[in-house]
Structures are given as C-alpha cells and as structure tokens.
Write a protein that binds this DNA or RNA. Structure first.
Lengths: 107, 107
DNA sequence: TCAAAAACTTACTTCAGAGTAAGTACCCTA
DNA sequence: TAGGGTACTTACTCTGAAGTAAGTTTTTGA
C-alpha cells in the first residue's frame, strides 16, 4: 500500500531527506562509509583533506542524530572512535544511485 | 556498462543533482508539474501561496537553466506564460520516489 | 616533567541565499 | 484617461551555514 501524496506533502517528504544529505561534507563522508566500511575520525580526516575538524565532527554528529551513522568509542590511551553506517544508512545507496543514473541520462 | 565511482566523484555527482533540487521552492514546484501538468505563472502563485513572485521566478529560471523545465510564452493581451517539465525532468519522479520510500523505511 | 597523539570544543568572521517591499511594461476595456 | 491583470525587476536587509584559528582533555612513554 503506497501513501497518497499531495504536491506539498511529497515535496516536504523529499525535503526531509535532503536535510539529511545537505551540508557540504555529508555526501563525501557517506560515500566513504558505504559498503560497510568502518573508519576512525582520523582516517576520515585523511580521506577528506579539505575538511576541518570542526566540520567533520559537526557533520558526523548530525548524521548520527539523523540515524544514518553510529559512533563507537574505545576508551583507550589515545582515544579511538569509529564511525560506520547504520543499516538504514546503507540503504541510501541505491536511492542515490537512482539520482546518479538520472543525471547520466541528461539529453 | 556502469561508471566507476570514487567516494569523491560519486559525492560530487550527487551534489550536482542536489544543486538542481535545492532552493527552498524547487521541490514544491516540481511536484506541481509532475505527471505532465502544465501551469501558468499565476497558477503556480496560487498553488504555492507562501512564495513571493521574486522567488517563484528565480526558481523557475534556474530550473529552466538546469533543463528540467520549459517556458512557453504566448504573446497575448494580458501576457501568458506556461511552464511544464522536460522529459528529463519527468524522469526525476521515480528517483525522488526512491528517496521517499527510503525515508518511510526508517526504523 | 614534558611532549605527543586523538578527538574533540569554542569564539569569531564571512558570505550567499532567502525574505521584504516596492516598482515596471504591456495592452485592453470602460 | 484611468484602472486592472499578468509577468516580471530592482534594491535593500537578514540569517544561518561554513570557514579560520586556537584551545582542551587524557594518559603514556622518553
């Protein structure tokens, strides 16, 4: 059974999703974690050289709050924190693929 | 044959798409035009009461520049301008549906 | 005892996108 | 000749996301 959408409610629904993806760095982070990859804070820093620590944390925290990323803290001598996608976060992959395919289809 | 994506290039590709959808009103306009609907400027104004004329034009012009909307001008006594989606614009619909379905799937 | 590594936090500035409000061009009708 | 409808422009202000740069905590090993 599919929901009934009005133009306004559909737009609103998509906008909720876009809010999760917005933010200059979320997509890059996302694609670094797709496929079940697990990364530490410092690994993400290295993988995305242009990002500042403030931005990296800010985006990760928002993604965590949105339920697409989980944080695992290891109480160690030099601290260690790992980030990975939630199951729901992983499922974003095909939806984003659909957007990429649409873009390739431009005439 | 599918393109090979790096985290950076995939993120960039999706970002190009998001740029097309961003802008506070583009989605609402989009959903008002999905399904082959044709609307005049004043009809869109009425359909989206909160939008200002400036914003409506601004967004429509950007969507036109992005190739998802076409403008048809009728040189009439009181001017008449119609907006409709391009074929490519229509094809966005299933991709946005994928996002909506993903959102519904939240646990 | 002092530096070093990792994961943050805090304070400040900058700028583009959005909002507000008003004005313009065109031609017809009364 | 004055007003009205349609589709725009223009000039200004405001706000929030992003950038810069520096500081904080914790414990170990030299």
């Amino acid at each position: 059974m599919t929901k009934k959408w009005t133009p306004a409610s559909a737009a609103d629904g998509v906008e909720q999703v876009l809010k999760i993806l917005e933010g200059k760095w979320k997509l890059v982070i996302l694609f670094h974690l797709f496929g079940g990859q697990v990364k530490r804070f410092s690994e993400l820093e290295k993988a995305i050289p242009a990002i500042t620590q403030k931005m990296l944390i800010q985006q990760l925290r928002q993604m965590e709050a949105d339920g697409i990323v989980t944080r695992t803290i290891y109480h160690q001598v030099p601290p260690k924190v790992e980030y990975r996608l939630t199951d729901w976060g992983q499922e974003l992959c095909p939806a984003l693929d659909a957007l990429l395919k649409w873009a390739e289809n431009q005439k």
